[in-house]
Design a protein around this nucleic acid. Structure first.
Lengths: 198, 198, 198, 198
DNA sequence: TCCTAACCGAGACGGTACGTCCCGTCTTTCA
DNA sequence: TGAAAGACGGGACGTACCGTCTCGGTTAGGA
């Protein structure tokens, strides 16, 4: 959509692309440091070295900006998938574990939850977990061959991985360790494995 | 300590106990209907039939009140535990599924996440998931006898149950269905079962 | 009226007379130190070592209490009058000058003005300047004999004395000095003297 | 300095000049109708058709606004002075009498007294009686030529005029009549006249 | 000597104003 | 047109105070 915006020749002075990035970066930093309530539009604008009105030229609402910041902070990396289901579960565990270890993820999580559950939604869950759908497609396609239960909801493995990371963070105040993530992957794989005929 | 507080006769006019409940109830209702942003102190006080200042006599802050409402709405029910680990995992799945089906839980979830991750924390996770600790104790005590992996983090089963419920809600916008929760319990149990000697 | 209150035998525990005085004294002190806005009922009660409700047993309103304090602080002394008009003008100047020199008078003045001009009046001007009426009576009776203008408003001399003290305080932030008061009295007397036949 | 402020182009949207006036007018009207206690910021803002925050952009405090209103209501008119001392005393009496006859003056008086005597002062007396200083200068310059006592405090005539108007208002609840003011001027002039050589 | 009405301290409570802060919009000037 | 700056309407927040009320405990004086 950036391409669209650029190709449609607008008259007048063009927007500085760097400004967008500076604003989002400022928002992420403020969220990380002080949470949502510290992420005032005034504060964001000041930190980005930009006028408040300039922010409103790009995002219609504070919520929209915070949503953009959340996406940028969390949905930026893309989980690599291979099609080998077992390997993808293990890889997914490691990926999610690393994402949660970055300070911005716990900082953004409350806003993501709020935005996703808002009515109407302010953040699309797809935007923050862009590979969930693909993960399910690959599970559907490759589970049986890998000896995993093909009757189960194909999103289940992904949801367990992500959900457990969230629950662990909430319960302990810190993200899962690498070893815990690996163990989790093993439990999921074992749980989904179809019982071998005796 | 309630006993102490009650026995130590405080001077002055005593607080009306009903007021506490009315305020929390009003807060929960407003949260459920309109989310956090609709849960104005003015609105809560009005709905509870109480002066705004009266609310501040009991909770120092809007956040504190919302935290109390969240605890009341979600931590109110207590997961029954038997000591039979397999049965408790299945029961836990059903319990969590039912809790998430009540409208107040999705409504409160964003605030719970915010409050638990806030710095300093405004909500103790124990308060909203009071049986997690006991669940882990029972797992530690009974896993081996039940043929489940005793080397794994004893909280793991609980965290998977709760976390998956959260992830499912975020991904689909609606809570897990009963059948899904049952399937989840089976996967967890199978995943934790120690490989039987061939 | 105190006598009335005492003679009408009230049942129950009688009021401690000292409490009234302590409350008024506290009010005057607070007014003198911090002005009206510092004279909170809470502060007065605390300083008097008394419960807030106790104050309301004696005065129906904060305004009423402040009015009482004003009367006590300013109307306490009574201007001595002799009937010799010239002498009473000079004496009045000195008296007013001394009253304004006490710190409580400038402190109370704003409240007195407010209370006297309030609608309905909360303070009767008679209560703070109890001898104005008598002064006028004596002027009416003795002016001609003293060679002073009998056709003028008999309150005029008193009003000039008091008013000039107020204006001087407002303009300079400090009360009139003794010499200034004496000079003022001379000007008034000279101004009121009927022109001697050439 | 207004010129400076105007020439030094301030960035941003300029303040609407009409708003200042509307707020002050609303404050004066409310004071006149209901006294200080009716002059709520909310009421002022509402009557001026302005947001409460807008008022706070111009005056830091309710007191400051009320002070401004007092100045505007009372200090607005300027006593015309001629340099002819006798004539100026008579003119001053009439002027003050007319100022006190306007309903806003008695309404504002308590606040003026409070503000002038506050510590620190919130209203400068110069602002409400801007010609007192000039009056004294002219008296000092012209008293002797006019046959008036040059040794007396040159502010005295003015202070008597203003003070007597205040005292009269306090004592009677209504301002001096025109005839009374004229008589007062005559008494002052006679009182200040140096005794003619026999 | 006991009863009883009133006093008194303490603090809850409804109500309301204050002053601060933020949002989203607007109106200016300058590039 | 973009962008900086800041005014503006609107509204919530947390604090403070008023005047009323409701407790518990105390204290004088009459029965």
């Amino acid at each position: 959509m950036d391409a669209d915006a650029r190709s449609a020749r607008h008259p007048g002075r063009p927007r500085r692309a760097a400004t967008d990035a500076a604003i989002v970066r400022a928002a992420v930093e403020l969220m990380t440091k002080g949470g949502v309530q510290a992420t005032t539009l005034t504060a964001v604008a000041k930190r980005a070295g930009v006028a408040r009105a300039t922010v409103y030229l790009r995002w219609p609402t504070r919520s929209a900006l915070i949503g953009a910041a959340a996406r940028a902070a969390v949905g930026g990396q893309v989980l690599p998938l291979t099609g080998n289901v077992e390997q993808d579960i293990r890889g997914g565990a490691g990926f999610i574990q690393r994402v949660f270890e970055r300070a911005s993820t716990p900082a953004m999580l409350p806003e993501i939850v709020r935005g996703v559950l808002a009515n109407p939604p302010e953040i699309s869950f797809e935007a923050v977990a862009p590979r969930r759908r693909e993960f399910a497609r690959l599970y559907r396609a490759g589970a049986e061959a890998a000896g995993l239960d093909p009757t189960v909801d194909p999103h289940l493995a992904f949801d367990i991985l992500l959900g457990t990371a969230i629950a662990h963070l909430l319960a302990n105040g810190r993200p899962m360790a690498e070893a815990e993530a690996e163990k989790l992957a093993e439990v999921i794989i074992a749980g989904l494995r179809v019982p071998r005929p005796a």
